[in-house]
Simulated assay, not measured.
Amino acid sequence: MSRAPRAIKEQTFEEDPDLPVRAMPDLFGHRGAAETLQKAALSGRLPHAWMLAGPPGIGKATLGYRFGRWLLAGGAEGALPEAATPLHLDPGHTTFRRIAAGAHADLRALRPNTGEKGGVKQVIRVEDSRDAIRFLAMTPAEGGWRFVLVDGAELMRPEAANALLKTLEEPPPRAVLLLTTAAPDRLLPTIRSRVRRLDLSPLDIGELDPLLMRLLPQLSTTERATLGRIAEGSAGQAVALAEGEGLAMQALVDRALADPGDRRGWHALADAVAAKRDGSGFATFIALLRRAISAGVRQAARGEARPEWLGDRPLADWSTLWDRLGQLAAETDVLSLDRKQAVLTALLWLAPPRR
């Protein structure tokens, strides 16, 4: 009697969220920082430790990988042809392909992961830091350099930061350590004093739009423009908003601010914001509302054209409202309060003061 064929178990593969960063061939913004890194390497006096600082999602890790693969491909030794953009490496180059695949023997990346068992806080653990230190001390496998990228260095545990400090004090030869951080002041002063710091700025719309065309080709020109505005120069934030409900929530924010006195429409708007049971729509709505208020106040303070709704109350009152909205979001999350009621409360606060 013949046996029935055994069912083939479907294989699942874990998504690699870092792949688009490792495999990005083009430079969007940050040309000055890239030129500084390249000139330092070509000078023959390359500092062994760098820090790229700037807001989240603006391309710090992307630039870090760009520098790492250029260095490991022999860029510092003049082994690469001149290019129109600094730190350029042809995507067909074997070093580019291996780093994109996460398979280069002389490059290691550290990034935050879940801390204690069952916890959700993202940290860089001491064992990861010590592993990177041992890696840097080894002779380069391909005779060139060793390169470690610490992405999100402000999330290092204190013991991880202290372990890394020893390597900064006594760096091994032909080894480069590059830290990225959105909060440089959270790093140990002793670490900050031993790295060369480059501050990166958010991308302007001319730099951001071509990048969004590549990352989010399904969006229209209008949708990309909206994302560029609310993401404030951060490609990472734009992608996160697009993958969530960012565009839909921004439309609701615009509606709430355009006619804050429309009490008849409040319940429908609150229902739309609170529709998702996981609370993601509510969190995005409040974050975008606060971002719009903050941007409007900054425009007014600089003497630029201000949104019409900003004239409903003094600027100081808008700043107070920004704080209250943040507190409302935090309390709603921590105390598991009714999200629709929280939205209605926010809309009530937005309503023009009665004369």
Rank of each mutant, 00 (worst) to 15 (best):
R355Q: 06
R263W: 08
A141P: 01
R6L: 15
A61G: 05
F13K: 06
A23M: 02
A100I: 11
G244M: 00
L87H: 03
L310M: 09
D18N: 09
R264G: 04
R174M: 05
F282K: 02
E169Q: 07
L89C: 08
H267R: 03
G296M: 09
R98A: 12
R224S: 11
D209L: 15
L187P: 11
R97N: 05
I293G: 10
V150H: 00
L215R: 15
D185R: 07
T332D: 05
L219F: 07
N162C: 00
D323H: 10
H267Q: 05
V126D: 01
A105I: 08
D259Q: 13
R339W: 04
L37G: 09
A79I: 05
Q299W: 06
G206D: 15
H93Y: 13
S43E: 08
R355D: 05
K340Y: 03
D16S: 01
A301F: 02
P173H: 04
D131M: 07
P47S: 12
E308M: 07
P81V: 10
P158F: 00
L42E: 15
D333Q: 14
A61F: 02
P20G: 13
R264A: 14
R197C: 02
Q250L: 11
A346M: 09
I286R: 00
D185I: 01
A79T: 05
L227C: 05
R255S: 14
A34I: 11
K117C: 02
S294A: 14
K340N: 06
A258M: 07
R31P: 02
P173K: 08
I8N: 04
V123Q: 12
L188K: 10
P260H: 02
R98C: 06
Q122W: 00
M51Y: 08
A109T: 15
R125W: 02
R229E: 14
I133H: 03
G261I: 14
E223L: 05
L328D: 07
G118Y: 04
A242K: 09
L257K: 10
A258N: 06
F135T: 12
E10L: 06
D151T: 10
L247G: 11
L241V: 04
A256Y: 00
R313A: 13
K9F: 02
A287N: 03
N162A: 01
R313I: 14
I8E: 12
P352C: 13
S193Y: 04
E35T: 13
A160W: 04
V148H: 13
V253G: 12
G152V: 11
L179A: 04
E10A: 13
R3W: 07
R146I: 12
A329Y: 04
V297W: 06
R108W: 12
L149Q: 01
R108L: 15
D312Q: 14
F67I: 11
V126L: 01
P5T: 14
A251P: 07
A330D: 10
R355E: 11
T180L: 01
P171A: 09
P184T: 02
D262G: 04
I286G: 06
D16A: 03
G152R: 05
M249C: 13
A175E: 12
A109L: 14
E14Y: 01
P17D: 03
A272Q: 12
H30V: 00
E159Y: 01
R298I: 05
S2C: 00
L164Q: 03
